[in-house]
Simulated scan of single mutants.
Amino acid sequence: MEIIKVNLKENSYNIYIGEDLLRQERFFSESKKCGNFAVVLTHKKILDLHQEYINSILKNISHQILIIPEGEKAKSPRQVLKIIKEIVKIDRVIKRKLFILCLGGGVIGDLGGFVASIYKRGIPYIQIPTTLLSCVDASIGGKTAINLKEAKNIIGTFYQPKAVFVDLNFLSTLKEKEIKEGFSEIIKYAVIQDKNLFDFLKKHYQELKGLEISCLKKVIKRCAEIKARIVERDEKEKRGIRTILNFGHTIAHALESSMKYSRKITHGKAVALGMVGEGYISHFLRLCSKEEVEKIINIVQLYSLPTKIQFNLLETLEALRQDKKFIRGYTRIVVIEKIGKVSIKENISFKIIKKALEKINR
């Protein structure tokens, strides 16, 4: 078991990485610290795929499971109220100390974390990510959010989990398209802060795409370390340090929103396209060479992720205007200088953004 400490004073917690983690005493001890009754948020698909493993764990914890629909559309105010009403019913009957177990990918983590942050002004929650993407990104750092039709993640809080358990057992049932989703975020970490990781991803792409455990564990650990250290320095994104984690996400969120969170544009695909688009913005601003953009394009393609997609340019630009990173008519975007080094640029004209979007529009 690998343990990464996220040092945030009273909000500190551990990230545990390994196999069969949920059968180990550490999981039960962390759960007991949170309370004595777990509300488990998960998808039916996860229960079906891992029924025996999940049952063997939950039989030792007083709990109730709430099934959440799949997809970004579940991150809605309506779904939040539905969950809270169910928790109120449970609370009235059991009269015990509740906590939430978020057993799923980014949707479950964002939704469950948000509910935990607002129910009774905050109850404990534990993240158990089940997708590669959520293992390296969504489950760490305490950003919780839900969507409106106008914009993604527009309503949210900063609310740290009490622990994160990255149990590699859950990755064994992922389909190829779900694996690809996670690599978009992994590539992001390499681009923003670690050229050695970038080179490792290029060299070992076949093993990683095949989910070879030793390689995968090394990469997940490194991504978790990068995010933990950034979050420690800027937990609530007040100093501008944490903003670099948004590389690729400004364009990504605009694409997802303008395309109505359809299956055509998953979050992983959107981030891959966003990194390419924001790479072009960096080049058009003369902050990086075209070769650096091509390096991003090449590694995105190496992991079978898209570099172009068909979308409505005007609707995507309008979605950008709604983005929470939009300031006084200009968008704040993370730009690259070279692989492993990024910065934040404000006052970028929509003319340059439009030119970059045209590069990724099929």
Rank of each mutant, 00 (worst) to 15 (best):
2 E>A: 06
3 I>K: 15
4 I>T: 12
7 N>C: 03
10 E>G: 00
14 N>P: 03
15 I>G: 05
15 I>K: 11
21 L>R: 12
25 E>V: 05
26 R>F: 02
35 G>C: 08
36 N>R: 06
36 N>K: 05
37 F>V: 02
40 V>M: 04
44 K>W: 02
45 K>V: 10
50 H>G: 03
55 N>M: 06
58 L>H: 06
58 L>R: 07
61 I>F: 02
63 H>Q: 07
67 I>R: 03
67 I>G: 07
68 I>R: 12
76 S>Y: 03
79 Q>G: 01
80 V>F: 02
85 K>S: 13
86 E>G: 01
88 V>P: 01
94 I>P: 03
95 K>L: 05
96 R>P: 01
98 L>N: 04
104 G>M: 03
111 L>E: 11
114 F>W: 00
114 F>H: 01
116 A>M: 08
118 I>V: 15
121 R>M: 12
124 P>F: 00
126 I>K: 03
128 I>V: 13
129 P>H: 06
131 T>K: 08
132 L>T: 07
133 L>F: 00
133 L>W: 00
138 A>T: 08
141 G>E: 04
144 T>I: 09
146 I>E: 08
149 K>D: 09
153 N>M: 10
156 G>F: 00
157 T>G: 06
161 P>N: 09
163 A>F: 05
164 V>G: 11
169 N>M: 04
171 L>C: 12
173 T>M: 03
175 K>D: 08
176 E>W: 02
183 F>C: 05
188 K>P: 11
194 D>K: 13
197 L>G: 07
206 Q>H: 11
206 Q>T: 11
206 Q>Y: 04
209 K>D: 04
210 G>C: 07
215 C>M: 13
220 I>R: 11
221 K>S: 10
224 A>S: 15
227 K>H: 07
228 A>L: 14
231 V>R: 15
232 E>L: 13
234 D>Q: 10
237 E>F: 01
238 K>N: 15
238 K>Y: 01
238 K>F: 00
240 G>M: 14
241 I>C: 11
244 I>L: 15
245 L>D: 07
247 F>H: 07
249 H>Y: 05
249 H>C: 07
251 I>E: 04
268 G>F: 03
269 K>I: 02
270 A>W: 00
272 A>K: 09
273 L>C: 02
273 L>I: 13
276 V>K: 13
276 V>N: 10
278 E>V: 05
284 F>W: 09
284 F>I: 08
289 S>T: 14
294 E>C: 09
295 K>N: 14
299 I>A: 06
299 I>R: 15
299 I>P: 08
300 V>M: 07
304 S>E: 13
305 L>K: 11
309 I>G: 03
311 F>L: 02
312 N>S: 12
313 L>N: 13
314 L>K: 15
315 E>M: 06
318 E>G: 01
321 R>A: 04
325 K>W: 01
328 R>L: 08
329 G>V: 11
329 G>Y: 05
330 Y>L: 08
332 R>D: 06
333 I>L: 14
333 I>C: 05
334 V>M: 07
336 I>H: 08
340 G>H: 09
341 K>Y: 01
343 S>R: 12
346 E>K: 15
347 N>E: 13
352 I>P: 02
358 E>T: 09
362 R>I: 14
